[in-house]
Nucleic acid binder design. Structure first.
Lengths: 120, 120
DNA sequence: CCAACTGTTTGCATTTGACTATAACAATGC
DNA sequence: GCATTGTTATAGTCAAATGCAAACAGTTGG
């Protein structure tokens, strides 16, 4: 479980912490039942505040990705198993909203997505 | 040219102003050569500060969507003509980044986009 | 049972960004 | 010349993010 942050980024540190965990889940690097490192440990390792790490953890809890309990850190939930799909749907809906806002055709939108996907 | 803002939104007011103009361009409601209403007029009409409106206008200038000159407000540039395409490419790249981050297949990604597009 | 561990909560200080409020300044257009 | 309008400057308010410190309450393992 690798957690890194960039203090110079515009993205809040707590969000960066949460993003690292989400990425680990998406990669299958963290599976249901796994525990995240204690917040105090992460805070000390990254040189940031306990509150900041916990706020990131709590955001993950609000998403149903982890369960928080005193004395046992954060545990990846069973519901996290289908998290990649939920994330994909969310991203697709954001893209669809942009497509509608820009007023382009569905065909052109799909073509552009194919192009963006193949250029990686 | 309709510009509205929602003070209770989390999105900064300046961004909301810029979004309204982008949407007008996307709809073809604003074409190259058109002028935006003077910042002071918009500020008074919306009950917000002159600076806030101008910051939104300047953001549009940074994107090459409008040209700002004293005494003549903001003018939609010729470069704004292909703005919808640029926006589409940008949105598609964001989606592609999410797809890669989530580690799903290209086929599944395209299918999900189709689904999101058709549900509107 | 006890002690260490760990999330929870509280309170306050600091920093940063967004927004507001005025005011003066400098091109533009009539 | 003069009204219009973007530009710049200065300063104040406000909320969010972050940091610091301390006490509190389940959890775990010996």
């Amino acid at each position: 479980m690798l957690i890194v942050v960039d203090p110079s980024s515009a993205l809040p540190l707590a969000d960066q912490v949460a993003d690292c965990v989400r990425a680990a889940v998406a990669r299958g690097d963290a599976v249901p039942g796994d525990r995240l490192p204690p917040a105090r440990t992460v805070a000390a390792a990254l040189g940031i505040n306990l509150h900041t790490v916990l706020r990131g953890y709590q955001r993950l809890r609000d998403e149903g990705l982890v369960e928080l309990r005193r004395g046992r850190s954060a545990t990846i939930t069973d519901a996290a198993a289908d998290w990649p799909r939920r994330g994909l749907v969310e991203a697709a809906e954001e893209f669809a909203a942009a497509v509608r806002r820009l007023g382009v055709s569905d065909e052109e939108a799909v073509d552009t997505v194919r192009s963006a996907l193949s250029s990686r």
